[in-house]
Design a protein around this nucleic acid. Structure first.
Lengths: 213, 213, 213, 213
DNA sequence: AATGAATGAGTATTCATTCAT
DNA sequence: TATGAATGAATACTCATTCAT
């Protein structure tokens, strides 16, 4: 199980959620992913959770709160703490080369996507309409981009492994190449996905593509 | 104005749509883009188009048909005829080098995205929930990927400019890098976007990133 | 063609109805009979008559007027002038016996029903909801029952062929027995209906059934 | 109260219908009878039942289901079990004479009509448009006509009380004469109806009318 | 006379949400 | 805590009717 899934379960367990409330959350996750938030009624959720309609509203005051409860732990992890971990090592002497760094991060995020496919699907589906979610994401991105990520990329620019572009541009390319693998992984319900190979490929493209001319 | 935009306008003009019906289409486009299809009511559309609710349904028999009418010309052009044009030149002797090819295609598609921002936003927003749209898109992709695109990439593999990966993988990387520029362009309503520079950058990354090791 | 059908056509022809208006009437007749008045829209009628929606309203100001136009000649003939014709003969010396009288009337009305099946179906279908139609019918019935019919039945009571019940009761029995044949004739679209035999049977039942004990 | 009325009330009571839901049923019955199914809106029903429109749809999923719920117990009893009861006695030795049989059945059915005037009015009003209802009725008729009724009529044909016609013809005459009394009873909201006398009269007509010549 | 685009009130139905039990 | 009946506003869609051309 992924870190997020664990965290999510802990969140659920930690709070005073009864079994029924957990069932509500689980049903919401599945239905939102399968049919979209707007096309899922609270009656659907109640039925899927084997719970009365009133119960759905006992803990979660609105349908939107239900969405938030389902998505919050996921959104918080989309932009990971990975960066923070790495920063420490880089500032020490044992900094890995750019390829190793990329491979680690890409694989980590693809695993994350794979293990949280339902949440990711909801996320992609609502991103366009849910200003709150979009803002949460953008804020996280900016924080990471302006903070730890800048330090990391600057490190590899200093070693000559990465071209001298603004960090934002480097990040955009990184995200694009990764999304090329992540999006199909999320949308297509296939389990034949070769995660290692995808990470290899994306790493190869980025290492070469971002190398100084 | 983009090719599509023209085509779209012609479609509208060609059919015997009255001024009011055109207003309905225009209002639908704007509202779907702004609030999403599900969150736009036919009453909203009628109000925005300064038209009665009955009028909304006079020409377009269902709300779904309205969405289709708004999106069809766009979807048909997402995967462009560009490929076809190029094939001809490549099969002749005057084939451009890989960088030139990429730059042309990328710029063309980014311009397309820029000029059809509203449609593109709806498109992204509905893709997850609208199986029909997703299928249309996937079919188009497969057709292009298995047809002209294969020929093109194989050409550049023969010239030694492109690494010997399966065409699908090359295409995925190409789309990812381009999406890295297109998605922010579509989502952020800024006109400061430097299209030329984005095309340069994406081209640079891909030319290097896909070059044989 | 039945008397009514002729009269109906004359009504249509006589008035300043254009070909299109006649088509509207014909389409209304067919659709009202097939789907009922409430389930037929004026758009349906326009389409079936190959006419614009506006044209439907050019001559007939409301949908109800259309119904009235279709039904009026029928309703006026449901209770026939037959009675008047007969009165004359009875008051003369050449009065037929009760069986002959019944057979003539029953056959005449069954033929009428057969030839005006569509109108009859609408009539039955609307009778319950359309107070105006019901009233028209009841008034006609009362007029006939209190007028000519009374004279006729009293004649046969005087000859000893008919039991000494109030005319209303005799009429009710007569209508019931006839309806037993007419209703299936109207509802079932079969042409195997043996009208002569039905008239024989109904006559036999009534001659015996209404004979003084 | 009639058997059906009881059965109907039990049905309502048996199911877990709340007071409000019963009010919905009652209001539907009254409004459908008064204005017809098509001319009764769910808003009308909600208002008449002093209930919100949502409540109308809580138990009954569609307006058609409401109609079915109102009519089902009635339709099931239109063609009664009476036949079955009689069969037993006839097959025993104590068969009543034809007049007694007729009088019993006619009185029973007229009482039924009197006690279920509202349902009967809806029934007559929808029969023409509601294929399902018509089919239900026809099937019941055929079952009775081909089953118990045949046995009964054949019994009276054997005793020489009834003319040697096909059972279908006998049934048709029986229904016609009865309808002559039942229809006015259903349509006219008068309580002066002398049921005993009507049964006497109908019996007299049929006993004589169907006697062998 | 005929058209057909336009209207707006109306219709069945859904749904997030509340509340008495 | 859980229930599920009740709510009422909202929704997609229909339809009789009008009117400018």
């Amino acid at each position: 199980m992924s870190e997020l899934a664990k965290l999510f379960d802990e969140t659920v367990a930690a709070t005073d959620l009864s079994e029924k409330q957990k069932a509500v959350l689980k049903a919401s996750l599945q239905l939102f992913a399968a049919k979209g938030f707007d096309n899922t009624s609270t009656a659907d959720i109640a039925a899927a959770a084997h719970v009365s309609e009133g119960t759905v509203y006992k803990h979660f005051k609105t349908k939107d709160q239900l969405l938030a409860a389902v998505m919050r732990p996921f959104v918080r992890q989309v932009v990971p703490r990975v960066a923070g971990d790495f920063i420490a090592r880089i500032q020490g002497q044992a900094a890995p080369d750019f390829a190793t760094f990329l491979h680690y991060v890409i694989k980590d995020r693809l695993e994350f996507a794979q293990e949280n496919r339902a949440e990711a699907k909801i996320f992609l589906g609502e991103l366009m309409h849910d200003q709150a979610m979009l803002n949460m994401l953008l804020k996280d991105f900016q924080q990471v981009a302006q903070g730890p990520l800048t330090a990391i990329f600057q490190h590899y620019q200093a070693t000559g492994e990465v071209v001298d572009w603004p960090v934002g541009e480097l990040f955009r390319t990184f995200l694009g190449v990764m999304a090329g693998h992540a999006v199909p992984l999320i949308l297509m319900p296939t389990n034949k996905f070769d995660l290692e190979r995808a990470a290899d490929e994306a790493t190869a493209v980025l290492v070469q593509g971002l190398r100084p001319a």
